[in-house]
Amino acid sequence: MIQIPEHIILLIEKQLNGHLNDEEAHILQQWRSEKREHEVIYQQLEKIWQQSGSILQETVYDEEQAWSKVDHRLSQGRNRSTIRLITRLAAAACIAGVLFIAGWLFYHNQAPALQLAKADQMNMPVTLPDGSQIILRKGATLSYPKEFSGNIREVTLTGEAWFEVQHDKSHPFRIQTKRATMEVLGTTFSINTNDQKDELIVATGKVLFTNKADTAEKHIIYPHQYSVLTKNGFDTKALTDSNFLSWKTGIIKFSNTSIEEMASTLSNYYGLYVRPDSVLKELPVLPTITAKFDKQPLDSVLEEIKLLVNISYRKQNDTIVLFKQ
């Protein structure tokens, strides 16, 4: 029979949870090498701990199937509550709209034909009639006229895109999103627009960024600035994320980047949810990462990170959980 002193139990517990400091590790190591039985006990405990953790964390239930049931139940309720209000408004709007469009077409039967570019499967380059180059990120859509007429070159964007606008002082280039208007003369910049926010990053030149809800609110955004418009208004700051164009270039660069920041960059780039586990997040000293990846599949990126900083990963459906080895 062997008594394990309470302070040693505490150390073993810390060790198994992965937050033991150097001094404590030393004490524990000493205890382990004191007697063979100590080492045996430690090994046995470690094994039970790891195996039981893996048993308890092993996926048993089919989450996808369960979700489809829940989603189905909710979609009925979800639509019902919104339909009442929306159908009435929509019905009214439809009638008004149809009448208006009919009338408009009747009197102005020369509305400019709109082109729609949609990047369904992969990033897609688009050349506009004026020679401007646009790259749409997978999922983005851009509508633009077959020919630019009038004084203004105007396009509409949803999703993320990179713009290289042909310089033409007499014909300002205007991008409409749901929430904002961005106007430029000729410059390069990147826009990401979705339901919650419009993000703008300028590489060269400058862009006039206007809130549609309050057109008095205009901001001029300069190179290496990052500006975001949400329902709470504008926020503009110096660009810190060097990976804002990785979706276009395929290159991801980390330089002394924290794990959480890295996880969010990878989530964004690979369209998956990557997160550190709770133990990793709570480590007093988190490693940082300096590395460069060039069009690598996620697996090889994660393997390299594993070698660099000893952080391993496991897959749970389409979430990738990072944890300390």
């Binding site: 308890l56 964390q57 239930y61 989450e63 369960a66 979700w67 919104t82 339901d195 919650q196 979430t319």
Partner: peptide
């Protein structure tokens, strides 16, 4: 946060916790 994003958040929570909660 609009309803769609909240639903995505909700879905993530479900994905993460469905199995441990059911156990």
């Amino acid at each position: 946060m609009n309803s769609n994003d909240l639903y995505v958040q909700f879905r993530l929570l479900f994905r993460q916790l469905y199995d441990p909660l059911t156990k």
